[in-house]
Design a protein around this nucleic acid. Structure first.
Lengths: 387, 387
DNA sequence: AAACTTAGTTTATTGGATAGACAAACTAAC
DNA sequence: GTTAGTTTGTCTATCCAATAAACTAAGTTT
């Protein structure tokens, strides 16, 4: 095995990435600005910028204001140099976006999903993706990739190992899509892409250690540690829905007892409501709470407390800068927020509480689909860097 | 803020590190071997090796066997180019080692600690470290650093924020030692250095994702993720002893309820034994179990089950390649192992169980002190790289 | 208009990696 | 003993990215 050794090409790639990232973050920027910002020599910046312009990733946008000298030529990233497709494959819906390289949404589609059979889903998914692709404007790089979030375990090869709510096992989703469209495809767990979405485009922007808790039918988690998505040994992790919070609690179908999601998920809420004779889904319960139904409000508070128990654990284990509640339950924020915060404050270690913020998804139901697009964009930039 | 940009010096540092690591890993090695192994040109390797020889970090050890041509000149790392001091500052003991740069123990000392007052501990610690330093043979780099593991929370500045069992708060241990000895000092939590010790010198060698569970009076954890020690936002994390496994369990002094260490630590064992009128410490209980005392054996099994509950959680959250039981309770391995494994197998997700191994500290009570020395050695290599 | 400022390019230099030539030192075959 | 072939490690000329410094361009201030 050969380690990647250092040579001049590596340096150029590194410095090009530094320049590009500066432009991405702080555009519009002049060459002189970049030189000062990065510490690179003006001549170096000029040369690297020229390369980026040649590759159509950067363009000049006219002159900026002078402060007593020659006017600077401002540069910006050409966000429309390429486009990405993001797909959120839900249990009973399909959501897709077409974004530019900055994550600006160009087109969006949703579709209810009735069938969960892999073949049927493929049959719907293919034209769904194709329609998004058809809307892509002409651009130098075209569609740079397709990112997909799925409600299940995914291995490094993009195979859906197990998706209980779809009843999928060992479905080679990446290969299937890759064969159809001939462009890079990235598959990941719904909570992982949700975490990425919020960290890049949502309330989690710039936070280096955060835990995204996706509270839907079940509970999933995406871990951002040191600004990177953490994946365990097999490429999947974050099954914190099956963190046991009651060692001798109710048995879970996973084999464990007292799993968190038995107490704190949408499913748990609906079951609890059904016991009290309140039928309907989350929407109906939210409406009831809005109408002043005290029993329902208490149910939400109870969910908040149960979420708090698990989140206190998470805070103690990871000492993150933020814990972010995402997915459908984030809509119940007003009804769960106080109970949740109180529980966490009671139960988490003081030293860790100092730094942690309890946040709610800013992108709402779009966290996952935006994160899916972002994985495709990020993979494109990685390819650029090594080319 | 200026990002570290790429220049030729960076290349040289990178490649020097690659060469040195190859020699560290696979010595004895010839220049030709290194060239083939790393992909670096022969001339480049020659030049970099010469620099390393000039810096006394590498030496030639004579010729190797020929396979039909000129005999190779074999190279090895000069492990005795410098030495490191590792200190395990326990609640009632002090353990110290002097190691060479490869972690070979040159000298070792232990001392009982009766006083826990910071000033008293300093009074004992200073001469203790000095005696280890006095045993150092002459070498080009001398003592490259002092690593210390402490039973408490440590911030990035090496201040012991809180050590409940020593009753320490905000003790600037690094500064104190640094002023005395004038060499780099690194302070970290006992479980963190224990994890490092086992990952570098013990049973965890080469494992990229592992969780070290230090089971002593309390329970601490060290997380090795992607081959690196994970530290949370504030520089400390892994307070998994206060992972709640019973949402409505016994209140813990940390504010939470049902904390893991209330059920699975040495303290929990001793309290349980005291209830049954069995006095004494872990040693006595181990002797009783050895003598066939069924009640005591059951107590150990119960600890094993409680450990298993928490470890199943850890496995589900991190999907690590190994979970490693360390510190004092690792001595009870035979009495807890079966109950622990069965509990984990029942409770952890199947997908995660496939890859996880349940291991026991190989260095026993030396995990922490060896890890402490290793942190000093690692910091030395980092300094080398940037110089 | 002269003096000063700032932006961006050009030029000569530095320094690390490299390919390929080479000398040294060995083995193997005859 | 001679010759051919192999392997090791060094030497040399070359390449290339970054850089400092000089320079051109294009403004503002007095």
């Amino acid at each position: 095995m050969t380690t990647t050794t250092g040579d001049q090409a590596l340096i150029k790639r590194m410095n090009t990435a530094i320049v590009l990232e500066a432009i991405l973050r702080d555009a519009p920027l002049s060459r002189a600005n970049i030189s000062e910002l990065t510490g690179l020599n003006k001549a170096t910046v000029s040369s690297l910028v020229q390369d980026l312009i040649d590759h159509q990733l950067v363009r000049e946008t006219g002159t900026g204001a002078s402060s007593g000298g020659r006017k600077p030529v401002m540069l910006e990233f050409v966000a429309t140099a390429g486009y990405a497709v993001g797909i959120d494959l839900g249990v009973n819906y399909l959501r897709g976006v077409l974004t530019d390289l900055r994550g600006a949404v160009m087109a969006e589609r949703t579709l209810p999903l009735n069938e969960a059979q892999p073949e049927e889903v493929f049959g719907v998914l293919r034209p769904f993706v194709q329609e998004l692709i058809d809307e892509t404007p002409a651009s130098p790089f075209g569609i740079v990739g397709i990112g997909v979030g799925v409600p299940g375990l995914v291995d490094r090869q993009g195979t859906v190992l197990f998706a209980p709510n779809l009843d999928w096992r060992d479905i080679p989703l990446r290969d299937a899509l890759n064969r159809t469209f001939g462009i890079p495809v990235l598959i990941d767990n719904e909570a992982n892409v949700g975490a990425i979405g919020e960290q890049k485009y949502g309330i989690g922007r710039g936070i280096s250690n955060m835990v995204y808790v996706s509270v839907g039918i079940g509970i999933g988690t995406g871990l951002i540690l040191h600004r990177e998505l953490y994946k365990g040994e097999s490429g999947f992790s974050g099954e914190m829905g099956h963190l046991s919070i009651e060692a001798n609690g109710r048995p879970c179908r996973c084999g464990n007892r007292g799993c968190w999601e038995l107490y704190a998920s949408e499913q748990a809420l609906l079951e609890r409501a059904a016991e009290d004779g309140i039928a309907g889904g989350l929407d109906e319960l939210l409406a009831e709470a809005e109408n002043g139904n005290a029993a329902v409000r208490e149910m939400f508070a109870e969910i908040g407390r149960s979420l708090g128990v698990g989140i206190a654990n998470i805070v103690n284990v990871f000492n993150p800068n933020a814990v972010l509640i995402g997915n459908r339950m984030s809509r119940a924020r007003v009804w769960i927020e106080d109970a949740l915060r109180e529980t966490v404050e009671q139960r988490a270690l003081n030293f860790h509480l100092r730094n942690v913020r309890l946040l709610y998804a800013e992108l709402g139901e779009r966290s996952a689909v935006m994160g899916a697009a972002e994985t495709a964009i990020a993979a494109f930039f990685v390819r650029l860097r090594s080319a």
